[in-house]
Amino acid sequence: MSSLAKRKPPSLVMLSTVFVLFWLVVAAFPFLWTMWGSFKVEGDFFSRADWMNAITGPVTQRQHGSAFTLAGYEGAWIQQEFWRSVVNTAIVTLFVVIISLTLGTLGGYALARSGFKYTFWLLMAALVFRAMPHVTLVSGYLLPFFQLNIWGFLPTTIIVLVAINQPFTLWMLHSFFLSIPKDLDEAAMVDGCTRFQAFRLAIIPVMWPGVITTGLFSFLLAYNDFTVTSMLLTQENATMIPKINSFLGSTQEEGKVMYAVAAVVSAIVPLFALILFFQRQIVSGLTAGAVKG
């Protein structure tokens, strides 16, 4: 195709440039705005007088002597013990990712290599399970968990999140293993390996791209979860997102809302870093289901 044929009329170029800029503002501006505002006091971030105050920060200057203040972060992290929730979130996400990947790899491999009809039914069941609103499942857990006295602990939540995550992990790894040629592990088995040895020696070395991508989504599920963690954990064991929600109840007091803003920004920053490093994997993960499913 000649480059002349590909060339666009200037009006179209203008239009698409404007549209891209518009979309970038819509997508990114709220986060940048909130990040900037988290270093101000409430009087500036929620300014009655002039919205420019949130950028320049005259009230912050008056109260703290400079246009930026860490008061919100100090209140959230130290006074309200947000650091505790951060530690809890770290524990929960780490274990959820490790356990659900271990179970999911084994299960996904089995589903990809078995040709029997029940694999179809298992995958369909997984699809239905994936569509279940999490809160319906939580309403099933609460009473038994109270009875068994396992409500409120981190391990319970970790196992629940792993289970909720399984349908998705299975689908994703199943379609990934389908893309690894069967010959690879079958050749290993012809050479005298058992099925498990073939998995360990032939499949594990080549499965990391798919596992990393799936792991990212397991991480996001555990990190972003509100429904399960808010209903199954005690106040002391709360993870970040329920903790942020609990700040909101006490926002009537002057300045408290800035604690929530600071906590929200603290929860967003790791996700920024995640996209920065794993953008390619996230994109390929999102499309994996589409291309093969």
Partner: peptide, 14 residues
Amino acid sequence: AFIWPSLLAMILFI
């Protein structure tokens, strides 16, 4: 042998 842990988790918690 491969799928039981995953299956168990889904049966127990879903």
